[in-house]
């Protein structure tokens, strides 16, 4: 393959992923509203289109037509920059998440991942560590007390939970012996899913993912009874939409990471034994990835509408005194497994 072909194939993959992500994000808002309606015994959006299926587009038009208000005391440039940082980080993380096996298409071997880098997991950690800036700067630049409190809360929360997240990933890396997401997926062949081998690490990672994406029960940065709207109080129109989009994109990425690291990625256990043609197997495996992703996303929504919000000190206690030790125990557990069974 020449360099032109590599660039062309990468561009096609990037376009595909970005457009799919935008579509999924907009319909995720629809499902959020529908599921919340079911949980609360309401009907939910049902006016725009059949069963309200065109509601996301109506929302987008509404947000675009709204006036963009910048507060007088705000730092205009940073106020504009903050939602861009949030959106950039949320969308670029998906570059290293593999959503299918290598396929043969038009005579090329194409791995179904935008960038197959050998430190993919570290790339994700680097980008999520940058996502703090979007929220913190939004809070600071608005020139409002509520925004600043929300921004500071978000950074403290994300830094605290990044630690247990990193240590839970450590358990996965011990087993896969590689930082390449594809190698991590391949190390979980059969039923050797990390969620089954190291359930404690799975739970700590899941909880940290909730905290990192600022979803309920950890949505302290935008706790509306205390902080009006938290870090995005002073945002309106498409800038607010950018934060909204990045929150949902972060959810999709967190789900993609959970599937890749703990649920065997695109693999279906023992599908090789059925003797299906390779094209069909690849298609089924992409379908399996999407199915697992959607299941985790549903779990995210389900938890949001079932659990009340934590108090701030409870959040910190949970992060530092429960999740952090548990993730350390998980590393010892995995190390013992390797020592005894030689996995």
């Amino acid at each position: 393959m020449g360099i032109g072909e590599i660039i062309l194939i990468s561009l096609v993959k990037i376009l595909l992923i970005i457009s799919l992500l935008f579509l999924t994000v907009s319909y995720l808002t629809y499902f959020e509203r529908k599921i919340s309606a079911w949980v609360q015994n309401r009907i939910g959006p049902n006016r725009v289109g059949w069963k309200g299926l065109l509601q996301p587009f109506a929302d987008v038009f509404k947000l675009m037509l709204k006036e963009d208000i910048v507060p007088e005391k705000a730092d205009r440039i940073i106020h504009l920059l903050a939602p861009m940082i949030a959106l950039f980080v949320a969308f670029s993380t998906f570059a290293v998440i593999p959503f299918g096996p290598e396929v043969h298409l038009f005579g090329y071997d194409i791995p179904l991942v935008v960038a197959d880098v050998n430190m993919g997991v570290l790339f994700v950690l680097a980008l999520t560590s940058l996502s703090v800036y979007g929220l913190t700067l939004a809070g600071w630049s608005s020139g409002s007390k509520y925004s600043l409190l929300g921004g500071i809360r978000s950074s403290a929360q994300m830094i605290s939970y990044e630690i247990s997240m990193g240590f839970s990933i450590g358990g996965v890396l011990l087993l896969s012996e590689s930082l390449r997401p594809i190698a991590i997926v391949e190390s979980q062949s059969g039923w050797m899913w990390n969620a089954i081998v190291q359930p404690i690490g799975f739970i700590t990672f899941l909880v940290s993912a909730f905290a990192e994406t600022n979803r309920l029960p950890f949505d302290l940065p935008e706790a509306e009874p205390e902080l009006v709207g938290g870090f995005h109080t002073e945002y309106s129109s498409m800038k607010f939409a950018a934060f909204f989009l990045s929150e949902y994109a972060n959810m999709i990425i967190a789900s993609g990471l959970i599937v890749t690291l703990y649920l065997g990625g695109w693999q279906i256990p023992y599908i090789d034994l059925l003797g299906l043609p390779s094209g069909l197997v690849a298609l089924l495996q992409v379908g399996a990835f999407i199915f697992k992703l959607v299941a985790i996303l549903f779990f995210f929504l389900w938890v949001r509408w079932s659990l009340p919000r934590f108090r701030y000190d409870q959040l910190m206690n949970l992060g530092w005194k429960v999740m952090f030790p548990l993730s350390l125990i998980n590393i010892i557990w995995v190390a013992l497994l390797i020592m005894i069974f030689g996995l």
Partner: peptide
Amino acid sequence: VAQVIIYAGAIMVFFLFVIML
């Protein structure tokens, strides 16, 4: 990657914290 994770992601966040507070 360590440069981004440690300097940009961790140390500068604390710097920003201090400056803002």
